[in-house]
Amino acid sequence: MTTPILKVTGLTMDFGGIRALNQLDLDVCAGEIVALIGPNGAGKTTFFNCVTGIYTPTKGDVILTPPGSSKGISLKGMKPNIVTQKGLARTFQNIRLFSKMTVLENVMIGRHCRTKAFILGAILRTKATRREEREILEMSYGLLEKVGLADFANEFAENLSYGAQRRLEIARALATEPLLLLLDEPAAGMNPQETLELDDLIKKIASEGQSILLIEHDMKLVMSLSDRIFVMDYGKKIAQGVPAEIRANPQVIKAYLGEEVDA
């Protein structure tokens, strides 16, 4: 077995006296779509925040191993922007777009950490800066085409529909060229049609070799997309496996779906 891209071991997070995450292990291999599911308040978003550097976990480690490299990098305690630079990009559960910027500019921001023009470059518009700007533009526009928002490139982000805003968040995260894309409830608040389109979009992205870790409540979407699923409850992992196994796991059904649901 190859080394996983992301390997989380014994992740624990305490808020005062409350243990939000308890000894959580999780791994994502290259090219995989892995889902993290669990009831509301299970600690899934806390998990994302710990992995992406918004919180520093109390205990445990987060190791990112770029494909082809033998040495992993510990992301624990790194600032969020460094984590992104190292190759994790995320979307947010409650959409956080730059609403007073255009759709295209939102994606262009994602290129920030992969480009380097600075004050002088910006003022003098040197050849290198112009080339870089062109590359940023082309790649960003390409991403908008991919998520189907090219027609809205010059609209303000706040004027997009809800589903489109979620897709824009994905495009923006992809612009950072992540090794692993983390999606925090991408289907939340979407209608069935939009969810279906999202399903296609994620599959399309994954088919290009993008590794994805997602948190999701929509079981149909999770079952359709995931290669493997991790289930957590009360900050602990209670199960892991391929969709079929999870579907059949009585503990999961009890904790997550509730007892009266026939699985």
Partner: peptide, 22 residues
Amino acid sequence: SRLGRAWIALREDEIACQAMGI
């Protein structure tokens, strides 16, 4: 410029900005 965009993004949402590697 790249810098100007980053400023405006920072004004709009700091957390999202950091998550984008700024």
